[in-house]
Nucleic acid binder design. Structure first.
Lengths: 224, 224
DNA sequence: GAATATATGATCCATTTGGATTATTTGCTT
DNA sequence: AAGCAAATAATCCAAATGGATCATATATTC
């Protein structure tokens, strides 16, 4: 069985390159080519359900109706079709908007065409949306930088994997605030030597060996 | 040049399968094998910087110190190493936590080993973290289901109150990550003395005199 | 009562850090 | 061409930090 594909891109050259590469790959049948979102939606109306594409490759920057809006509209009209962004843009904002609009995958044009064929075919077999490595990487970084945060249903059990004692936690808090041993000692009315001893014990439990490392780990693990 | 790899997995069989497959693939050199996070961190201490792995493949469910905590600790200790999760678990929570902890990639063990080699090698050339298609797909779905939402950082604070030069900002970033002068020097291919000179200039501009203070100020003022 | 964990404190030592000073090179600006 | 800001780098020094070891007191638990 071959996979029925639609190509939506405002550049004639692009449409043809993609078309030829996919045809050369085999497995694919190009059933629709459009030069923008409006064009795509118009042409879709002329097709019977059997003729419709199973996958639509959609560029993002297009006149008339851009990729994001096209996907948003098309997902409600034809929810069974898999919409895959195929573009040169890799900025966070576009990625995020396209996904929210309902994109099933996100491929970069600088993938060589063979790769694109591979990824589309793999999507077909595995059911997982195809995503270019560079895009996936960007999303990971968004998450790491706290620009993407998970909306938690239950914020429960933050188990204390690094078992610090109460005193150690108390000292850790002062440590990450930037206090020296001397200052910690003053604050807690103990000898700076003791403060230091605690800190070193903390380091051993956390497997770190500088204040900054302890701070990062404490923040990540919510030890404060 | 071959890529130096560490394998952290509690099952002997798994370690060996991964090792053999990667060795058969070529390009890879296994420099460390550990059976849990503590073991890994212990063994890392015995290695000189030159001997250290460039990539650490880390399983998630392990006794002693699990994968997420291991990555959290290791990223602060050895920020230059790329930590790639290699596991059978694909539930959202684990994925998300691992990424937050600092995972650079997330691979599923059901990938055939050739694929894993491919993805690791591609990571090495492209610099993008390797992510199994199924995982990337899950993340997209999280976003679509509004379980992951983007948080726009307030970039209005872009005013350069403390006028750091580009180089100084660059160095500040490394400094707050926890790198020593020596490490900053290595990272930027300059003398540790120069790194130090920059840091002290930064301190003067920020009116602080320790790393932790600089970190706090930088975070408050959004200098990063 | 003995064993254990925790908190306290000191001492010694090597390394790192913070600070001041001086100097050279590079790339712009006037 | 002269002037200036950055970036580079080295040297000297004092203070702080990180690490190891030993010692003591005080609870708690078995």
């Amino acid at each position: 069985m071959s996979l029925k594909i639609a190509i939506v891109d405002d550049k004639y050259v692009n449409r043809n390159i993609i078309k030829n590469k996919l045809l050369a790959y085999g497995h694919f049948e190009i059933v629709l080519m459009a030069e923008n979102g409006s064009d795509f939606l118009q042409k879709m109306k002329t097709l019977t359900p059997e003729e419709r594409p199973e996958v639509a490759l959609i560029d993002l920057e297009m006149p008339e109706l851009d990729g994001v809006d096209t996907i948003a509209a098309a997902t409600t009209l034809y929810p069974n079709i898999k919409y895959v962004v195929l573009t040169i843009f890799d900025d966070e904002d576009k990625i995020f908007k396209a996904i929210k609009a309902g994109a099933f995958g996100y491929l970069l044009k600088d993938e060589n065409a063979e790769n694109i064929g591979d990824m589309l075919w793999q999507m077909h077999s595995s059911g997982a949306g195809p995503i270019s490595p560079g895009i996936a990487h960007k999303i990971l970084q968004l998450i790491q930088n706290n620009n993407l945060t998970i909306v938690k249903k239950d914020i429960a059990n933050e188990k204390i994997l690094f078992e610090l004692t109460d005193r150690e936690t108390e000292i850790l808090k002062l440590l990450v605030k930037g206090l020296s041993y001397k200052e910690i000692g003053q604050e807690l009315s103990i000898s700076p030597n003791t403060a230091k001893k605690h800190v070193i014990n903390i380091y051993q439990k956390l497997h770190v060996n500088t204040r900054i490392q302890a701070l990062h780990l404490a923040q990540e693990k919510g030890l404060l």
